[in-house]
Nucleic acid binder design. Sequence first.
DNA 1: TTCTGTATTTTCGTATACAATATTAGCCTA
DNA 2: TAGGCTAATATTGTATACGAAAATACAGAA
Lengths: 232, 232
Amino acid sequence: MSTSQSIVDNLMADPQTLADKVFSELTTAIVRGELKPGVRVSEQMLVQKYGGSRAPMREAIQKLEARHLVVRIPHAGARVVSLSLAELRDIYEVRVELESMACRLAAERMTDDEIAELQTLLNEHAASIEAEQGQSYYQKAGDLDLHYRLIRGSKNERLQQMLYGELYHLVRMYRYQTSTSTERPLQALQEHQRIVEAIAARDAELAELLMRRHIQTSLLNLERLMAEEEGQ
Amino acid sequence: MSTSQSIVDNLMADPQTLADKVFSELTTAIVRGELKPGVRVSEQMLVQKYGGSRAPMREAIQKLEARHLVVRIPHAGARVVSLSLAELRDIYEVRVELESMACRLAAERMTDDEIAELQTLLNEHAASIEAEQGQSYYQKAGDLDLHYRLIRGSKNERLQQMLYGELYHLVRMYRYQTSTSTERPLQALQEHQRIVEAIAARDAELAELLMRRHIQTSLLNLERLMAEEEGQ
DNA sequence: TTCTGTATTTTCGTATACAATATTAGCCTA
DNA sequence: TAGGCTAATATTGTATACGAAAATACAGAA
């Protein structure tokens, strides 16, 4: 579990340029909900916050735009992206397809050692839930950790880029915002266990199916939470 | 057929800024192979070519990076992306999944009118091939046109963004470069016809399957062409 | 009070200048 | 002659300045 946080949070190992550093920090801020959807992100503001001049700030904002974390309008500036429920469904629809695909490929391509590591990871999660010490944050980190490993297991670089770089930030962003409540950790763990079992059995089709259902369930969950939040 | 070219080539309707204009032109240049893979794209060079100052050129290059059309290394500059066969396979693997998904959704979500337009389009293609007047460029444009319409038919904005913005430029780039030869237009047309038939019958599963095969065939074709070119 | 048109202010798009880094060419040495 | 080191060059990263566009505030009229 010691590596979970780094895998989840460290997205840019060594920012060689100021623009990259700002981009990296802004990304985490947005994903964590410290910068809320719809909030303006002006270049001047970033200069005051991070120092330096406008040029690198502008570049950072453009990088955020490329990852769909902000929306930029010519001459009008950038705002933190604000997704409608319909857009979130679109994202999940694509995510389901890509991640279940990744799962299928993982079942075909992961080495036996890598699969063994998955099982170890799940045991740790189980212990963590049993002891109820990890709390929801670590459980979520653990959840992400497994998903990341499976995606990596697809051995398809482009697929990994699309899932990490395009979709996951947005998904995480809305999960952070909605799920202050504990997010059915036990059920999720059991689903994970079944998925890993299928992979261990090299049953690609089943693994794909189970992952598809797993993510669809989490969408239903997210919709419920958003509806509740709306109702408040 | 009159709209084909605009759909295929016009990617930015009205570039409100110089950076966007340069980005737009560079994109077409790279996709058409006028800027070959591996070629350096320096800011100074763009200033000389398009006028203006470095700032907007820099921004254009960053936009290209976001679309994976150039690779940028800090302090070292940008080069037109050069894909290995393995990377191209990764891209196609993802494309197969996303586009067959789009096809499935199209079968479920397109209106009857939209489907009727597909059939009209195919008739035009058939006539064009019969007359052999269109030549390979128009046939390719027509091929793309159908794919674009199906993707739009998915009614999933994010899916469209990913296919257009992330994958298609790269796919087209390598198709332009390899396929000087006529690219099995008749066979492709027949495959298209079957796909549209399935959509008209609202048989989503079949439409998905046929599209999957269609793209896999085109990958095989591309690999053959690249191998031939390698051999020269 | 609410809407609209205008003026002010803010912010962005672009131009230019300087600093830091990587590339390249040339020289020296083995 | 080949390889490595050094200096010159070129290119990028950043800073600052100015013009243009949009957001905002305010005043006046309905």
